[in-house]
């Protein structure tokens, strides 16, 4: 009996896999990952179109660059949400 009680006291208590902090971190990760993939996907076509236009007319570099990074806002929203989750 004594032995068993001592053993129970000494054995480390297994922490639950997903506590509140873990869920928050996971939520933030999903927010970043999802929006990251989404902006990458959106930028793929715009980027290749911009390159196509630039290959013909170099003056379009500025416009192409701006249009290409517009979907970047999506990942910024994701970043904001992730920070809000973490600070809440």
């Amino acid at each position: 009996m004594v032995d068993a009680a001592t053993a129970a006291a000494v054995a480390p208590v297994a922490a639950p896999l997903l506590d509140a902090a873990g869920l928050k971190a996971l939520g933030a990760a999903i927010a970043i990952a999802g929006t990251g993939i989404a902006s990458g996907w959106a930028e793929k076509d715009i980027g290749s179109a911009a390159i196509g236009a630039m290959a013909e007319n170099e003056a379009l570099f500025g416009k192409g660059l701006i249009l290409t990074v517009i979907p970047e806002t999506i990942v910024i929203f994701g970043l904001v949400v992730a920070l809000l989750i973490n600070s809440a």
Partner: peptide
């Protein structure tokens, strides 16, 4: 096919 690239490039060519 990479339509976005080809089509934009062709449109730029058409403008010339």
């Amino acid at each position: 096919s990479n339509y976005a690239y080809a089509v934009t490039r062709v449109r730029a060519m058409k403008s010339k």
